[in-house]
Design a protein around this nucleic acid. Structure first.
Lengths: 217, 217
DNA sequence: CAAATAAACAGGGAAAATCCCTTTTAAAAA
DNA sequence: TTTTTAAAAGGGATTTTCCCTGTTTATTTG
């Protein structure tokens, strides 16, 4: 709540065109005003340490080069838990959404929503303390059953490394060599993953890894 | 140029949050004003047919569900060639940029630019008739040599279909069946592509297709 | 300590992918 | 019409992938 009786918002997003534009939009809402924006978590820390007044809400992007949304959310919750985090991202996969909510985000918005939804979300966030769109709520319910998506998605360290290497042009033999394991062990990883993820071949694994953000292009 | 002596801009982007925000930003520029925005090419056609006055500039996104940026640019150039198209997209790969410029775009901006760049781009667009950022100019120069990226990237229709199907869990035999070709012909496509793209196996092809936006997840 | 559990590893075989080289067929050019 | 060129298809061999079953080894647990 600032001088003119509006709730304050900080934007954390490395896409400055989007951030600046969003600032204009939010400032056009009756009850909200943008306090500042930061290109990443580190810049947010600096700004918060400088400013005397904390924002009521932080609009937080996830994909940022220096200090990403997860890390930033963690820091905010640890140092300024009164700030309400509203995640705002392109990522629409369950894992990312859940991870962000576990880090303390009070809401999760996709970037391709209607502007009025943002206004609603901000208002509900201040009134109820949280906001969850239908899509996100659905995701939450769907994820209560950890049978399907929980056990399946809980990868061991070696499995993750294998998946990443399998998303390259290496043969399994080569993968076994760089991981310093027997080709038969690698074959075991492969077979186990194929069964758990219900995929038929290596291409399926690559597609899966991409969809779940396990690898970057 | 509208009533208040400002150049008019139309925004074509299916991300309404971004579009609305961008509208506010552009309206804050001294020499520009947003006339309207459309969620896709079809909506743009409708709006242009309704309105008596044409926008000076169309800010055009590429990834849209109904009628994408390429198709839209084509229509604009065919029906209202006086409108200056400024492509505004996340895609930063050469092929996309070049294709857009070939369709008649007078400039190409990445969505993660600084807001002031947009202002500069709009102004230059009206003054000089075009705007090319350093990155895009570089891409243009680099692409003058069609040896590497030109001959390699010029896929035939069947090759494109094969690539897309190869990015699934189908076997080559299955691909041959749905394409109504002999497995040996498919093997010929595969071998030719592997050589041209300098890749070792099918995973390499999937990665390539993803990087070049030949397929969507 | 014994039993249970999970990770690493193996044998063996069928299917698929990869590679090289040749032939037929169809279309385009000389 | 002959020649050339490109697409489609085939033969055949090797490597890799994929799948099932089982054993050893290490770690955890009763």
């Amino acid at each position: 709540m600032n001088l003119v009786g509006k709730h304050t918002v900080a934007i954390v997003d490395d896409h400055s065109l989007f951030a600046r534009s969003l600032e204009k939009l939010i400032n056009s809402f009756s009850h909200f005003r943008v306090l500042f924006h930061a290109k990443n978590g580190v810049e947010l820390q600096e700004r918060i340490n400088e400013e005397k007044i904390l924002p009521d809400i932080v609009l937080l992007d996830i994909n940022m080069p220096v200090m990403n949304g997860f890390e930033t959310a963690e820091w905010i919750m640890g140092n300024h838990p009164k700030i309400k985090i509203l995640a705002l991202s392109m990522e629409d996969d369950e894992q990312t959404i859940l991870r962000m909510l576990r880090k303390g985000a009070k809401g999760y918005l996709l970037k391709d929503i209607h502007p009025e939804i943002l206004n609603t979300a901000l208002k509900e966030l201040m009134e109820k303390g949280y906001y969850h769109s239908d899509k996100v709520s659905e995701t939450l319910l769907h994820s209560i059953s950890p049978d399907e998506e929980g056990r399946v998605m809980d990868f061991k360290e070696n499995e993750l490394i294998f998946i990443q290497l399998a998303c390259s042009e290496m043969t399994y033999k080569e993968i076994a060599h760089v991981m310093d394991l027997s080709p038969k062990t690698i074959d075991g990883y492969r077979q186990d993953l194929f069964k758990r993820l219900k995929i038929k071949n290596r291409v399926g694994l690559v597609i899966f890894a991409l969809k779940k953000n396990l690898i970057k292009l």
